[in-house]
Amino acid sequence: MVGQQLVNGLFLGAVYALFAIGYTLVFGVLDILNLAHAAIFMLAAFATWSLLGAGLPFWLAAPIAIAGAGVLGIVLDRIAFAPLRRRAAPNLIPLISSIGMAIIFGAIARGIYGPDERQFALAFLQTPPLHAGPLTFTIVQLVILGSAIAFMLGLAWVMRATALGRAIRAVAEDRVAAALLGIDLERTIGATFFIASALGGLAGILTALQYNSVQIDMGGQIELKGLAVIVLGGMGSITGAVIGGFVIGMVETLAVAFGLSEWRDAISYGVMFLILIVRPTGLFGKRSLRTA
């Protein structure tokens, strides 16, 4: 049983990690929380469902929806964040602005799709579960785990080895200095939003596949967990988001395994507090909030 519970925790953690990577990326660059991330997560899942309904194969529908999520991220930045950035608004304002956008996105989705849960009619979701000794898991769970690891490594590579990654890191470090060095601020921020939102969209699609469930409120349920994950992992740290995701997933699963299902959420947030007491910047956070 313990082995299966560790596997359960690993898969749950992978979902949290994938969601949190995009969340933390935007924070790392702009020092703001993008609370519309969960809405994009939901919209990408619905877009995939619609494209499949229109007859597209999954291998085409999912990338289109992911790219669409990325573009929506850029639109989000242009509408909700860029105007405030130009006026140097305090950090709380874009936070509220992103909540507003999340509500608008939610209302649009509700208008189009209504409140009912949707499902994918995909043959590969019906494949029987796999067994490895006493352990049971599904192909989709493996894909999610693989994706979380692959995208973490991919993103780490982009951030370290490409011009775009260097530009993003420079902007994150000091926006004014980066601009003086000739980095196009708005393009870099736009690219950050594209990557973060595309990853959010991917997380939404994979989560919808794992539970075969597309719902208007699917983002709201993961949003708070995502916040706990990035705080625990260290705000702005991609490695932190991934490790934090696995820690929260594992803690939740083990809380249930030890017979404390009614305390599950309280325990995972309790662990977050404990880690913050020992390391106030989270597991992988390097800096505290800038004071000047």
Partner: peptide
């Protein structure tokens, strides 16, 4: 076992029930 309305992942509770 308990859960919250809106939960999607019941693997941990079900693994415990199975045992």
């Amino acid at each position: 076992e308990t859960f919250h309305v809106g939960d999607k992942d019941f693997a941990a509770s079900l693994t415990k029930i199975k045992a």
